[in-house]
Amino acid sequence: MATPDGTEPEIRPYRSPDDAAATYVVARTAIARTAATAYDPDQIAAWLGPARLDLTGWDERRHGASTLVAELDGIVVGFADLRSDGLVDMLFVDPRAGGRGVARALLTVILHDAEARGIAELRTYASRSARPVFERLGFTVVADRPDNTVRGVVVPNTEMRRLP
């Protein structure tokens, strides 16, 4: 899908360890700016947690999933993780690239990947800001999770799924 300016996000596999810092920054920026429109400052602070100086654990977590990276003009602007059990564990887009089809492109490739791998159902725990993106791609609400807790702070989200 082309973005409004005619460019298409390039979707490619995560490259370790080269993509660790860029994907980490995308996640933190998306939480701090995009999710901040739907959550209060205490919730954002809990979700962000302490900044990592060593990205080894972050990089290892990307290895535990099939991670895709989105680039526009050679710059990492988003990423998503698909775990082997069908959990879309992460979906983050840099707010500066919002509205340019990045999340849709990432999820579309994940849908094709899941089908090719025989994963019968995709699941996610969508934030308030991510829920509309998942809904547009056929995910339905399983349950609202008003008591979801992150680092001792309630950060509500929604359990969603998508059947083939």
Rank of each mutant, 00 (worst) to 15 (best):
V26E: 00
A27I: 00
A27H: 13
R28A: 04
A30P: 02
A30K: 05
A30G: 14
I31F: 04
I31A: 05
I31S: 03
A32F: 04
A32I: 04
A32W: 06
R33M: 08
R33P: 00
R33H: 10
T34K: 02
A35C: 14
A35R: 01
A35L: 14
A36H: 04
A36N: 08
A36G: 11
T37K: 09
T37E: 15
A38I: 00
Y39H: 01
Y39C: 01
Y39S: 03
Y39P: 00
Y39M: 02
D40I: 05
D40H: 14
D40G: 15
P41K: 10
P41S: 07
P41Y: 13
P41E: 11
P41W: 11
D42W: 10
D42C: 04
Q43I: 08
Q43D: 03
Q43V: 08
Q43S: 08
I44G: 10
I44K: 10
A45S: 15
A45R: 15
A45E: 15
A46M: 11
A46P: 11
A46H: 08
A46C: 11
W47I: 03
W47H: 06
W47V: 00
W47S: 05
L48W: 08
P50D: 15
P50G: 13
P50R: 13
P50W: 07
A51Q: 13
R52H: 12
R52V: 00
L53D: 15
L53T: 15
L55K: 03
L55R: 04
L55W: 04
T56L: 10
G57S: 07
G57R: 03
G57H: 03
W58K: 05
W58D: 01
D59M: 03
D59W: 04
D59I: 02
D59Y: 05
D59H: 06
E60Q: 15
E60T: 13
E60N: 14
E60A: 15
R61L: 11
R61I: 02
